[in-house]
């Protein structure tokens, strides 16, 4: 459970680590939109080059980014197979008995795979350089305008923050219960369906009981320290926009504009 790379924060000291999470989230949204603009292989090439430069600048290792893509491999293979069988336009490239492969099928598949890879690169760049807690603050601030519409942005942010805080504690707890039940002869890997269900119950029920207990304690601790749901508070962590933040947002939007230009220059 502890070697999941997708969405993991890597504590390093780089230009990207120091940026305001709001700037990074805005830039990420711009780039994600850019990825979906059909700017052809030239456009994707430019995007990939920029993202690779950014990953280098963030001092991240490529093996880390590649690892983050691993869960997508199966999906990519699946997509390729479907596309080969479904898309039958363009030039015929290859025939083997009933199987025929057209170049459009390959092109479409390549587009999708490249887009997926670019998306993963973008999101990894964000999550690997932003502490989960800063991300929460960034989202809270960005959602501020919706507060007037009655969206409890602060409560949502507080909930996310508490969830993040308790994930490691609960993983430890799950590990302990798993071991305790294994000591009572539970086999979490083998066994009939009935045995499997009982094995899972022996983990889930205690986890629920413990979570409720913790939630109860936590609510007391929060109230005792003066927390009132919905009441006015002063936020300790203030986010500050710097020069780098403006550069990143402007850069990302310029990139988006360039993609739009590349995609539609023929039609103008």
């Amino acid at each position: 459970m502890k070697n999941v790379t997708l969405g993991q924060y890597i504590p390093l000291d780089s230009f990207f680590h120091k940026l305001d999470p709001r700037a990074k989230i805005c830039a990420m949204i711009a780039i994600l939109i850019a990825v979906f603009i059909p700017a052809g292989f030239v456009g994707y090439g430019i995007l990939a080059a920029v993202l690779i430069a950014c990953i280098l600048r963030a001092k991240l290792q490529f093996s880390f980014v590649i690892k983050a893509m691993k869960p997508m491999v199966m999906m990519m293979i699946f997509l390729t197979i479907i596309n080969v069988f479904v898309i039958k336009t363009g030039n015929l490239l290859y025939t083997l008995g009933p199987v025929t492969i057209y170049d459009d099928a390959l092109k479409q598949t390549a587009y999708i795979i490249i887009r997926l890879a670019l998306m993963i690169m973008t999101t990894t760049l964000l999550t690997a350089t932003t502490k989960p807690m800063d991300m929460t603050l960034g989202i809270e601030d960005l959602l501020k305008p919706f507060e007037k519409l009655g969206v409890p942005t602060h409560d949502i942010a507080m909930m996310i923050a508490l969830a993040l805080r308790f994930i490691p504690t609960l993983i430890d707890e799950a590990e302990r219960i798993l071991k305790a039940q294994a000591s009572r002869g539970v086999d979490f890997e083998n066994g009939s369906l009935k045995e499997k269900i009982s094995a899972i119950m022996s983990l889930i029920v205690p986890m629920f009981v413990s979570c409720f207990q913790r939630a109860d304690d936590l609510a007391d601790a929060m109230e005792a320290r003066g927390y009132v749901v919905g009441a006015k508070r002063v936020r300790y962590k203030q986010l500050k926009f710097g020069r780098g933040d403006y550069i990143v947002i402007i850069g990302a939007n310029l990139l988006l504009a360039l993609m739009i230009f590349l995609a539609y220059r023929g039609t103008i």
């Binding site: 207990q213 003066g226 009132v228 508070r233 002063v234």
Partner: peptide, 22 residues
């Protein structure tokens, strides 16, 4: 564990101050 509210020591001490609008 169940009374450590912040994600770091700093944030945890800040929590009460935030509530009391320091």
């Amino acid at each position: 564990d169940n009374q450590f509210i912040g994600s770091t020591v700093r944030d945890d001490i800040a929590f009460g101050l935030e509530n009391h609008c320091v």
